[in-house]
Design a protein around this nucleic acid. Structure first.
Lengths: 144, 144
DNA sequence: TGCAATTAAATTGTAAACAATTTAATTTTA
DNA sequence: TAAAATTAAATTGTTTACAATTTAATTGCA
């Protein structure tokens, strides 16, 4: 078995599936004016209302180089405000706006649609999700 | 259960794992002057020596908007040549160079390193790979 | 206290991704 | 066969990613 052969690789399928999932999200998210990474930011904000850029980066595994311009675009679109902390001027707080809050209702039907589109067998997906989470937790425990 | 909550999502873990895998490849690929998408192109070329841009796109699920500039960079680095087909002037053939061929030896130890770095339990990964491939094949059969 | 080390964001520069459009060649079909 | 439709790449423009560096603020400790 030639381990270099594409189909034997373990990593290409993950990469391909990730892009495929993003492409399934795109038409739904387009309707509410979001990209997939922006949608991830909104999910954090729908849960917490206010987070720092650093906290956001930890949740999404993204650094300020990615987040700063992304959050600026979202602020321009009125979904959040960026405000430097008064306690610690290094920190920037990201606060959800009314408009951002209201978007949650519009997004509420997306996850179920996605699961349906990705496959007919939901069972398979929850198994896949569980496995990937195991791998990711294994990874994050290495970082401690 | 709030289906919108990040950790309940099925898609974020795939997205996060994909970027994590790419970051594991990066230091190894850097040594031989490749990015991850470029490495995927090389894997196709190591198997076939010559392919069209279209065939490459079908294998990697990428369009000419991504591939054209990527292949130009690889041609500049001397890994391949781009040559318009004489039979059909619309088609561009991508041909591996001597330098590109030689890179295969240097890349040969990467896959085994990756598997080791990603987890200690290889079994888990082959299971994951199998599942993702099932999902992807399901998807491609919908396209026919 | 005051300077070195650390930390949080921002900036800079490069390389994907991908939608939408354009260009040019080839096929189809009326 | 000539116009219409299709096809393959390339182009244009926007948005991620991310390494490396910079800036500014805070902490730690000599």
């Amino acid at each position: 078995m030639d381990i270099l052969k594409l189909e034997n690789q373990l990593c290409f399928p993950v990469y391909a599936l990730s892009r495929h999932i993003t492409s399934l999200y795109r038409p739904h998210l387009e309707k509410i004016g979001l990209t997939y990474p922006q949608y991830l930011v909104m999910m954090v904000l729908w849960e917490h209302q206010q987070v720092t850029v650093k906290e956001l980066g930890q949740q999404l595994w993204l650094d300020s180089g990615t987040l700063t311009p992304l959050l600026k675009r979202m602020a321009e679109n009125g979904l959040l405000t960026r405000k430097r902390s008064e306690k610690d001027e290094r920190v920037v707080n990201i606060i959800i706006t009314e408009k951002g809050e209201n978007l949650k209702q519009e997004a509420s039907d997306i996850p179920s649609k996605l699961i349906k589109e990705l496959a007919t067998d939901e069972e398979q997906f929850f198994l896949l999700q569980k496995q990937i989470n195991q791998i990711l937790s294994l990874k994050s425990s290495q970082n401690i």
